[in-house]
Computed example of a mutant assay.
Amino acid sequence: MMNEKEKLKLFETFRKESIDLLEESKVNKETFLTNNLTFLDKLNLKPFTTINTLNEALYNYHYYNLSAKKSNLEAQKVIHNAKKKKIYVKCINQRENFYHLKDMATLRLLEILEYKNIDSYYIILKSNRLKGEIFEIHIKNMDKAILHSKSKLILENLKTHGVFIEEERQSLIDSYVNKTY
């Protein structure tokens, strides 16, 4: 049986390999999400209550981001079913809670990094609803560490630390963020 540290190392390897598959168009966004959710389920590593390392923060970010996307997919399945309105509302509330927890992991990651080696900016999106809301955080000295948020608190912290660029840019993972599923 693997300990927490071994599971975290396995996650790091899987995360990079699954991102490579997505970048090489060997899997689509939906398959990427499904594979990641399946992996996390099998890994059986709960999110860290106290984040002490960059890898723990990245794990929590990934865990909560995937959980939010899963809740959103479940909500979309019942959105037009009036009899399942309570299920829809529950899924949307879960999604928002998971995104909040993801943002807390992002804040902790930024604190650990002391806001160094970071580029951040709004990203160009096809979605008019999210335009000017979602920004990207590129951790330059970590492999495949590209985070997204629309948290006003994170945005203010990035600006305060002088690492937010006031211009809209194409996401480093544009084909992923602008692909619906």
Rank of each mutant, 00 (worst) to 15 (best):
M1E: 06
M2A: 08
N3P: 08
K5P: 00
E6W: 13
K9S: 11
L10V: 08
T13D: 13
I19Q: 06
S25F: 13
N28A: 01
E30T: 10
E30M: 06
E30P: 00
N36H: 08
L37I: 15
L40V: 07
L43E: 10
L43M: 11
N44V: 01
P47C: 09
P47Y: 11
F48M: 10
I51Y: 02
T53S: 15
T53N: 03
L54V: 13
N55G: 07
A57G: 15
N60W: 10
Y61R: 01
Y63N: 05
Y64W: 14
Y64P: 01
L66C: 07
K70W: 08
S71G: 01
N72Q: 10
N72E: 12
L73Y: 13
K77L: 10
K83R: 10
K83L: 11
K86L: 14
K86E: 15
I87W: 05
Y88I: 04
V89L: 14
C91A: 09
L101T: 03
K102A: 11
T106F: 04
T106G: 00
L107C: 05
L109H: 07
L109D: 03
N117M: 05
N117S: 08
S120W: 07
Y121W: 05
S127H: 06
N128L: 12
D143F: 08
K144H: 13
I146H: 08
L147M: 09
K150H: 12
K150A: 07
S151D: 14
E156Y: 05
L158I: 08
V163Y: 08
E166K: 07
E166P: 05
R169D: 07
Q170Y: 09
S171K: 01
S171G: 03
S171N: 03
L172G: 11
S175R: 12
V177R: 01
N178E: 14
K179G: 00
K179A: 10
